[in-house]
Design a protein around this nucleic acid. Structure first.
Lengths: 148, 148
DNA sequence: CTAATATATGTATAAAAAATACATGTATTA
DNA sequence: TAATACATGTATTTTTTATACATATATTAG
């Protein structure tokens, strides 16, 4: 066989990650439970739990167990870079795996795709969580609608 | 529910499209059958048939039916733009579908992702098929290995 | 004219990937 | 100590993608 690139999959998993950060960013003053966030977005709580756990491992959120526990941002909104978040949530963002492709040694595609991906990520590297929250007040109101 | 973006999926389908163009580009002097190309890459012939058919609809290749029929490039290598090929093969390249997402009206993500995708495609727009075939001789040799 | 061979095209099946559900463990505190 | 929230592994479902199958249509060598 031979696949020249495995597909740039920005999954819902990464989508959820960013949405969690947006939620926590608009509620910086307190901890939020995963169930609360799942309810706001009408998303699978189990899935979101793993997303949040991963965000914790990557150092973006800190969690508190037990009653009255929950999650909060571990960094300031201005410090959380969107490109970095995407990179830490998406595993196969490298356009590799040309290993089994017959023409890999002479294929000009790899270089072109890598340059394109680099450009893609460079744009995202130019944004912080704070940049995505310019309309913070409106965001908060929309999110509260979901929880209520 | 609510999905803020559907995923940039550069599928194997697009991969195959570009590989077909590379094959035809290195055999410009004659028509090639789909089965020959499928054999070279060790790929499903049925799948490739549809890829080729689509390339025909998009105007990149012209096909001849019947015995001694086959496919050939309908444009010069220098005229075939890689970004355009990707756009015509991938349907959902637009990062839309925020329709059902709660926070869409105040979400800064959409803009960031669209800018990133634009940067990605702009890079690909800078390449032609000819650019990917700089090592044409080596390509031809590798492909012949697959057919043999 | 006809048998061989190639593309054209719709449908069905299989494989892979992703999302979600389920189950159970661990920690915290009112 | 009961309630609640995170932690984590496994199983199931859903979705997407790739492939297989079947059949129609076109072309041409002989």
């Amino acid at each position: 066989m031979g696949v020249c690139w495995p597909g740039m999959h920005l999954t819902r998993y990464t989508d959820y990650s960013l949405r969690v950060l947006l939620y926590l960013g608009t509620h910086e003053e307190r901890v939020c439970s995963v169930s609360e966030i799942a309810r706001a977005y009408d998303i699978s709580q189990n899935h979101l739990m793993k997303v949040v756990h991963n965000l914790g491992r990557a150092g973006y959120v800190s969690s508190v167990r037990g009653r009255l526990g929950g999650v909060r941002l571990a960094q300031a909104c201005e410090e959380i870079n969107i490109g970095a978040v995407v990179r830490s949530m998406e595993e196969d963002l490298q356009l590799v795996d040309c290993g089994s492709c017959l023409i890999a040694p002479a294929c000009g595609l790899t270089g072109a795709l890598n340059k394109a991906l680099y450009a893609f990520m460079t744009v995202l590297d130019g944004y912080t969580l704070a940049d995505l929250m310019k309309q913070r007040g409106k965001l908060a109101r929309l999110l509260d609608l979901g929880v209520a």
